[in-house]
């Protein structure tokens, strides 16, 4: 059973997906469903002895097409919609012990091409308004399978966080004639203290408004709204800065740092969003090597983040770390 239920107070959709309760939970290495299928061994999700990058539809999807019948009837106040969409799993490597940080720049460059292909293909479906590419890494984030992988949710609506960014970007553009994100990049460059690293096409910073201690945003220096707009050189530069940033994270405390990585780009609902600007956001859940940052009362109940650190200090810390 799966459906979209309208939250009338927050004016946003909640996805119910009760079948996901039965999904695979931290299987032993020899029974990883994302590894290649070895001769004589149990069949995994990938019926091949090896692979480079693989994408497949999630066995336990929150959204699917055609969508299953709703479990309940809606009303004028409590609206219900079919949970139509697509949930995909993106396998970065056939090596179970790998991570995105451990992969080569070439593999990350290839992954960017796969992301672009999925954005185009899923975004072209008439029931998909937004293609959301992300990775949850680490048990602390709730990852149920440790094999290196990311996910894609193709939503039948534009998600609320993206809507807020779009609204802010449109308002700024109407008031100033400029792109909000381009102005943010300008502000970060003028100040300089929050920049972690950069190359010809991208800039990574702990932004002024960071909500997590080690939150980093990677901004495209050129005003571009989505992955298909990037040139070959920009894709290489994105792969390089991603690799650099991930190595810095892993070298921060000498451990494979858990994080959420999310790509924010244009919706695919057929409307124009010339004022929006591509970027990637990282939210690592740790505030020190031993302490987690919890989304507690203020964050979950009031939507107010409390960051116990200064972005300027955390950026300096990350800037000093060698990306080796």
């Amino acid at each position: 059973m799966s459906e979209l239920r309208w939250h009338p107070l927050l004016k946003e959709w909640v996805i119910t997906a009760t079948h996901r309760q039965d999904r695979t939970f931290l299987p032993p290495k020899d029974y990883c469903p994302l590894c290649p299928t070895k001769p004589g061994a149990f069949p995994t999700e990938v019926p091949a002895e090896d692979y480079e990058i693989v994408v497949f539809e999630n066995k336990f999807p929150s959204l699917q097409y055609p969508a299953p019948e709703e479990a309940v009837e809606g009303s004028e106040l409590y609206m219900v919609r079919p949970a139509a969409g697509v949930c995909e799993v993106v396998l970065y490597s056939s090596r179970h012990e790998s991570t995105l940080a451990a992969e080569s720049e070439e593999t990350i460059r290839n992954l960017i091409e796969v992301w672009t292909d999925r954005y185009n293909e899923l975004g072209s479906k008439d029931y998909v308004d937004y293609v959301f590419i992300f990775e949850n890494k680490g048990k602390e984030i709730g990852v149920t399978i440790t094999h290196p992988h990311g996910q894609i949710y193709a939503y039948p609506f534009v998600p609320p966080m993206i809507l807020r960014e779009l609204d802010a970007s449109r308002e700024h553009h109407e008031n100033t004639g400029r792109c909000l994100m381009c102005d943010i990049i300008g502000e970060e460059k003028r100040d300089g203290r929050r920049i972690v690293c950069e190359n010809g096409s991208f800039l990574a910073a702990v932004p002024f408004y960071a909500r997590y201690p080690y939150e980093v945003h990677i901004f495209s220096k050129a005003h571009k709204g989505s992955l298909p707009e990037f040139t070959d050189q920009e894709r290489w530069d994105l792969a390089k800065i991603l690799k650099q940033m991930l190595l810095k994270y892993d070298n921060l405390w000498g451990m494979s740092l858990p994080y959420m990585m999310v790509l924010h780009q244009n919706p695919t609902n057929g409307e124009r969003y010339d004022y929006y600007h591509f970027h990637i956001e990282f939210y690592p859940p740790y505030r020190t090597k031993e302490k987690l940052k919890y989304l507690a009362g203020s964050e979950s109940g009031a939507g107010v983040f409390i960051n116990d650190t200064l972005a300027e200090e955390k950026a300096a810390e990350l800037r000093e770390i060698e990306p080796k």
Partner: peptide
């Protein structure tokens, strides 16, 4: 980039993305 789509259990789609040849070409460009 080469794409190969196949069907897997539960009427789902799986796509193999192969780059071996492309990567060598890109490496020269890089």
């Amino acid at each position: 980039m080469k794409k190969e789509k196949i069907g897997i259990s539960g009427e789902r789609t799986l796509i193999y993305y192969n780059f071996s040849k492309k990567t060598k070409e890109s490496e020269e460009k890089k």
